[in-house]
Design a protein around this nucleic acid. Structure first.
Length: 642
RNA sequence: GCCGAUGUAGCUCAGAGGUAGAGCACUUCCUUGGUAAGGAAGAGGUCACGGGUUCAAUUCCCGUCAUCGGCUCCA
């Protein structure tokens, strides 16, 4: 007999070699039906794998993220089985579970797979699932494994085997398909009741651009058909929130092939929003001791050679433009920091001047490869809410924390509650990707970690994600479709001050080198607004929305009064428009509702004679009649409550 | 840049080897109205662009460009 300890601390005795599935069965039949896998002493474990000694156990079901992963991992195997039975000579790369489903990278030879094939593959998968084949685990020696894949001619699996040690290699077989796999897997394929293949895409083998591109098939599976239906509805909803769609509908921005890809054109309504965001942040920054500066859109190539940006990115970037007579080379500004460094040098600095905080809404241009541009989130020309803080080494932490606070304030103001904080460090294995000394890097990384720990934010550390000149603290937010985007960023940099030979005179009358903090709470206005649109589905906070009201005259007799009300409201700094179309009120309301205008002001005979407006709120309905002043108060109050 | 899909009116989309379609939006006229679509008429197209096959191509083939989904990259 062995003792099994449950997560709540309870201990029960079982026969030796009991399986998690049997353990579940001893608790309830219902639980046994739902057990997908387990963790035994924290180790991933098949539901059907025997437990040989005393152990702690955690049973995984569909309600656990880990349980879903087991399900999806097994579904990837099922898809592989289906593919192998449908296409001859398929070779397999890797097939892991992901956040929402699974994928498998496969080499189909000359066969080209398209979404048209999905139906047949799904059908085959369900057919195989209904056979309720068990996932059989088998430990194999490295030689056996190599032999197996040599025979099969699958060079991808052979390559994967190279990095595995003898004694830790397992095969899993379900039905007629065997895969090199660590596991764990669901008890049998019958647990997979609903399958949907979602997309097909090229994916480089091992993520290496220089290696062969495999076909990646993404899919998702569920233990119930109903859950799949719900998921598909969710995807539909997400599509409706897509910032590209809403941006078009609400006339915020547009793109033109003639202007060039990845170069957003901000329409009047979008520009109004941008300006409100800019004013909001500028005000907060002035309070925090920042000074606004302006630099031009091009800069001498030498500037970026000095900073290291040219060496790092010049080759893959927009190429230099030359002066016609002298042939001097200039670059479209890809970064604001070198300019700000030169501004710092405009006048000798004393320690009494520090920190110096230069802020600029600087528009920068970067060459993004054609397949990479994406709506407003990935563009070739964008405006950073950039600032550079030049401070003494012992001021770094305090300044850094102040910037974190500012960033959190910005995210809070826009109701971003679901973001992750990432400390991006240098990859010590790949030092050639970075500039500067180990000593400087160690200092900078230590300071970032200390600062973020002091704020008690929970954060993840990502090795190799640092900028080439310094480590970063990044704020990541998800878009409607679950894609993660970096918004705000704060970076500590010892290297550019060195390269630009920045100095200040200390109290000891000696020259010292300042430390730079690069930071952008929005990241870029473009990306920030994109994610914001998706975050609120176009229902912007009242202070930010481009049109706060629509005045809807009952008939054209009241257009004049409507105009007067509009002007009056403008005096209160409330903006909107008059819908003076020759349409009935119902129609005007409907259109204003669709445009997501927060307030509709209906004016007719009664309102004109009483100098009032009839207020209707978007999504809520009639709020009744009130004076223009009362309405203005209402708007102001709602903005304050934000 | 790479893999796959797509490209028809301002928008959303239908269509077929032989005269280009709908709804919405737009313009004009009628209607002057009270909380989610009033009526009529009109205008709007080199069917992304360039080649090829064909008596005939918007439709079939090739190339280019752009968009979409991924990969890679993202100072």
């Amino acid at each position: 007999m062995i003792d099994i300890t449950f997560p709540d601390g309870a201990v029960k005795s079982y026969e030796e070699n009991v399986t998690p599935l049997e353990v579940a069965n001893s608790i309830s039949e219902g639980l046994a039906r739902n057990v997908l896998g387990a963790k035994v002493n924290g180790e991933d474990w098949d539901a059907t794998r025997p437990i040989g000694a005393n152990a702690s156990i955690q049973l995984l079901t569909w309600s656990d993220d880990d349980g879903k992963s087991v399900m999806w991992h097994s579904s990837a195997h099922l898809m592989a089985e289906a593919l192998e039975s449908m296409f001859t000579g398929v070779k397999f790369g890797i097939g892991p579970p992901v956040e929402n489903g699974f994928y498998y990278d496969i080499d189909l030879g000359d066969k080209v797979l398209s979404t048209d094939d999905f139906g047949a593959i799904e059908k085959k998968m369900i057919e195989l699932a209904q056979q309720k084949n068990i996932y059989e685990r088998k430990e194999v020696s490295k030689d056996e494994a190599i032999e197996h894949y040599k025979e099969k001619g699958d060079e991808y699996k052979l390559e994967l085997l190279e990095s595995l040690n003898d004694g830790e290699i397992t095969f899993y077989t379900q039905g007629g398909f065997t895969d090199l796999c660590r596991g764990p897997h669901i008890p049998n394929t019958g647990f997979i009741k609903a399958v949907k293949l979602l997309k097909v895409a090229g994916a480089y083998w091992r993520g290496d651009e220089k290696r062969k591109q495999l076909t990646r098939i993404y899919g998702i599976s569920f233990p119930k058909q109903k859950e799949l239906n719900q998921y598909m509805d969710l995807l539909e909803e997400a599509k409706k929130r897509d910032h590209r769609k809403i941006g078009k509908e609400m006339e915020l921005f547009t793109f033109s092939q003639k202007v060039g890809i990845g170069l957003p054109l901000w329409l009047p309504r979008g520009t109004r929003m941008r300006e409100k965001l800019v004013n909001f942040l500028t005000k907060a920054q002035v309070e925090d001791g920042y000074e606004q500066v302006v630099s031009p859109h091009i800069g001498h190539k030498d500037l970026y050679v000095t900073s290291g940006h040219y060496n790092q990115y010049g080759e893959d970037s927009f190429q230099p433009i030359k002066t016609p007579v002298e042939g001097e080379e200039f670059l479209l500004k890809p970064m604001n920091c070198p300019h700000h460094c030169e501004m710092y040098k405009a006048k000798p600095k004393s320690y009494k001047d520090l920190p110096v905080r230069f802020a600029e809404f600087g528009t920068v241009y970067r060459y993004e490869k054609s397949g990479e541009v994406h709506g407003l989130t990935r563009v070739r020309g964008f405006t950073q809410d950039d600032a550079h803080l030049f401070c003494m080494p012992d001021q770094v932490k305090e300044e850094f924390i102040k910037v974190i606070d500012l960033t959190l304030m910005v995210l809070g103001k826009l109701k971003f509650e679901d973001f992750t904080v990432q400390v991006s460090l240098r990859d010590p294995e790949n030092k050639e990707k970075y500039i500067g000394s180990d000593e400087n890097w160690d200092k900078a990384e230590k300071q970032i970690i200390e600062a973020v720990q002091e704020t008690e934010l929970t954060y993840v550390v990502e090795i190799g994600e640092a900028a080439f000149y310094g480590p970063k603290l990044d704020f990541m937010v998800k878009d409607a479709l679950g894609r993660k985007w970096q918004l705000g960023t704060i970076q500590v940099d010892y290297n550019l001050p060195e390269r630009f030979e920045l100095e200040y005179t200390g109290s000891d009358n000696q020259k010292h080198r300042p430390v730079m903090i690069h930071r952008a709470p929005f990241g870029s206005l473009e990306r920030f607004i994109a994610v914001l649109i998706e975050h609120c589905g176009g229902n912007f906070p009242l202070w930010l929305t481009p049109d706060q009201f629509a005045i809807l005259p009952i008939s054209d007799k009241y257009n004049g009064y409507a105009e007067n009300v509009s002007k009056l409201l403008n005096n209160y700094d409330i903006c909107g428009f008059v819908d003076d179309r020759n349409e009935k009120t119902g129609r005007k309301i409907r259109d204003a509702e669709h445009k997501k205008v927060p307030f509709m002001l209906i004016v007719g005979e009664q309102e004109e004679s009483g100098s009032t407006v009839s207020v209707r709120k978007h999504g809520k309905g009639d709020l009744g009649v009130m004076s223009v002043e009362e309405f203005a108060d209402l708007v102001e109050k709602e903005i304050e409550d934000n």
